[in-house]
Amino acid sequence: MKKQDLTIITIAALLALSLFILNRSGILSPKQAPKTQEADDIAVTIIEQGANSKQTITPLPLMSEDSKRWPAQSYLRISVNNRIYEPISLAGDSHINIRREGGYHNEAEVKDGIVRMVFSTCDNQLCVKQGALSIQNRDLRALYHQIICLPNEVVLEVLDENETKAFFGENTPDDAAHPLMAPLLYSILCLAFLFILRLTLRLLLGVRRK
């Protein structure tokens, strides 16, 4: 282990931490829903359990009249082949069917506020293995708030109320709720962590400054 190796490791750790801060600072989260065209070849159907009613939801532009979906703490955003669909409240249980031309088929399930991919036609089945996703456990997951099926280009995301309103609604959330405090705190913590990491590495590997 040479000194240059330590430098490389430190640079990589810095990179990881800055990416982490970048994500937490909320700069990257999309502010408004992009315009989407209607897709003929994709069908997203939701079967709400209990009500036994079946409905097909449409890509974004048609959703603004539908206001009864709002009162909930968390929402599911579905995007298929880069088209984003209207948010689904996680308050009720439902079964979601996502079909695309070409034999792509995914099935997701919402139960007690927990989303899972239960079926997929993809060959690696990684989306099914990604397991449960809810507003509570999303901070602990490697993929954060997403369940991704890359072969079928299906992305399920759990958003909280503010994020949903910022993305789908007309009224933007007050920025006072997210001051600069959190990123600052994170960066201080990260710097402290880096310092400790460097110290331990030096102690463990016996690299000394000349």
Partner: peptide, 29 residues
């Protein structure tokens, strides 16, 4: 993956993967 999915929401995952890569890279090295 970001290019294919047209999203920048994977930054969090990238941070985690970079962190993991430091450990695994040191191992393979």
């Amino acid at each position: 993956a970001m290019f294919i999915l047209q999203t920048n929401q994977l930054v969090y995952y990238m941070a985690i993967l970079v962190g993991v890569a430091i450990v695994t890279g040191a191992l393979t090295g």
